[in-house]
Each structure stands twice: as structure tokens, then as C-alpha cells.
């Protein structure tokens, strides 16, 4: 083969590959510079999440600063993901039953076949497997959670009476709270409702990137701290409450329902 012919042929092949390289560079330019905003926005939707951090609700105290009603943090073990197909749910149920039989409900699949959304009584979605885990259990299940991915350890705020033996009528006047979709406790009745703005506090915000498995990429965590709610002090002491004294008039739950203090 003559060198001239060889040069012609190799030049053609080289030109083809160089053109290919140019095309590849153009493609990179298209995605990394020309259309970057579009694809970045799409990726942000997929990979970045913003979570609201619930604030600790303020306590209700007596006039001597003794806490009567406090907010406590509890850790529950809950099933998280809702499997789209019944078959997948059955498989998961069998798997979990085999591995963790001690705290799983033994419901037949038919019983929950048509349960829509979150069903606290059922086995399959959002169910609390174990309430109020101990510190050791939190560590144990948090480690398991990474492998199993079917359940998660969830922190839940709830209200608890700190002083035992208070009259039922008084407790009713304090009112109730319910958690909203972000886990923030909201006053539903009584003093809790009336002084909600004071007690509730302001939620914080966490912006974080999730990896392809849904785990947090810790180096990307950012956001704002939650501001805890302020305490409410009552004009009665615990002893007075036990003696049956009621809240003064003008105070919600008191003799004369009035405005805020």
C-alpha cells in the first residue's frame, strides 16, 4: 500500500473522529451551558427537598413556674413507603413478619386491600410499628433503617401532663393539641387554642439534597433554626388547682371566657 494512499485513508478516518469529537463537545456545551438552567431546575425538583422543622411548643406553668403541661419528643418506628401494588405489599408484609414478628400486626391482606392513604390501624402504610422507642432502640433501628428501607424512626412531638392528680375539669380547660402535616402541634381547644400564637413558636427549615436512595447528603444541609414557643404562666399554683380553684374570669377555660392575657 502506497504511503500516499495510506495518508489519504488515515486522514479521512482521523477527520471523521475529529468531527465526532467536535459533535460531542457541542453536546456538552448544549447541556452544560446552553440549557443548563432548564436541567438544573429539573434536577432541583428531583434531588432537593425542603423540610419544616417543628418548634418545641411552649409549656404551661403554674404561678410558681412549675410545669403543668409540657411538650415531649418521642421516637416511633413507622412503616414509611406505600407500595403501589398489592403483590409488593404482600411480599413486604411476609418479609417484615418473618424478620420482626414481635411488633407486627397480623392482619390478612384482604382486610387492608381497599384502605386508601394513611391507615394507622393497618399494616401497610404510615403504621406505627412501635411507639416511644428507648434510646438504645432508636440507635438500633436507625442502623437497621438504612438496610431495610421499609420503616423509619420518626420523631414526634406530643403534649404530656407533668403533674399527676390534677382535676379533669382543669385539664379540659387547658385544651388539646393536634399535629399538622409537618408535625407542628397546633392548639385545638381551650388555653392551647387561645394562646396558640404564644405557645407554638416558629418552624425552622432544612434544605438538603437527597441521594438516589432518598438519603440526605449531609454536606448539603442548610436552612434556618426553629424558634421554640414561649411558656404560658397561669395565675394559679398547682396546690390551688388541686384544691379546685378555677382559672379567673377573662381567661379561656375560666369562669368568664374572654380575650387573651
Amino acid at each position: 500500500m502506497k504511503i500516499v494512499r495510506f495518508r489519504q485513508r488515515t486522514f479521512l478516518i482521523l477527520s471523521f473522529l475529529l468531527f465526532w469529537a467536535f459533535l460531542a463537545a457541542c453536546h456538552v456545551f448544549y447541556y452544560s451551558v446552553w440549557k443548563k438552567e432548564k436541567y438544573r431546575a429539573e434536577s432541583r425538583k428531583l434531588g432537593w427537598k425542603t423540610y419544616r422543622v417543628p418548634p418545641m411548643r411552649g409549656a404551661i406553668r403554674d404561678k410558681n413556674n412549675v410545669p403543668i403541661l409540657i411538650t415531649r419528643l418521642r421516637y416511633d418506628l413507622v412503616l414509611t413507603r406505600v407500595h403501589p401494588s398489592l403483590e409488593a405489599r404482600k411480599r413486604r408484609r411476609a418479609r417484615l413478619k418473618e424478620r420482626y414478628p414481635s411488633f407486627l400486626f397480623q392482619l390478612p391482606p384482604e382486610a387492608v386491600r381497599n384502605v386508601p392513604g394513611i391507615n394507622p390501624e393497618g399494616l401497610y402504610c404510615g403504621m406505627i410499628l412501635k411507639k416511644d422507642l428507648s434510646a438504645d432502640e432508636v440507635v438500633y433501628y436507625a442502623g437497621k433503617e438504612k438496610k431495610e428501607r421499609d420503616f423509619t424512626v420518626k420523631a414526634v412531638f406530643f403534649r404530656e401532663t407533668a403533674v399527676p392528680g390534677l382535676p379533669e375539669t382543669f385539664l379540659m380547660s387547658l385544651g388539646k393539641t393536634v399535629p399538622d402535616e409537618n408535625g407542628i402541634l397546633r392548639g385545638e381547644s381551650g388555653l392551647e387554642k387561645e394562646y396558640d400564637a404564644l405557645l407554638r413558636g416558629a418552624p425552622g427549615r432544612v434544605n438538603v439534597m437527597l441521594d438516589k436512595y432518598g438519603f440526605w447528603v449531609t454536606e448539603t444541609i442548610g436552612g434556618t433554626q426553629a424558634v421554640n414557643g414561649k411558656d404560658l404562666r397561669l395565675p394559679l399554683s398547682v396546690e390551688e388547682i388541686r384544691q379546685g380553684k378555677t382559672l379567673p374570669a377573662g381567661m379561656p377555660g375560666g369562669g368568664n371566657h374572654g380575650g387573651k392575657r
Partner: peptide, 12 residues
């Protein structure tokens, strides 16, 4: 799609 997103994150 992940390839596209990765390239977009690179920028110039």
C-alpha cells in the same frame, strides 16, 4: 436524565 442533570450542574 441523570447524565443531562450532571452536565447542567457543571456549567461553564
Amino acid at each position: 436524565r441523570q447524565f443531562q442533570y450532571t452536565l447542567a450542574h457543571g456549567g461553564l
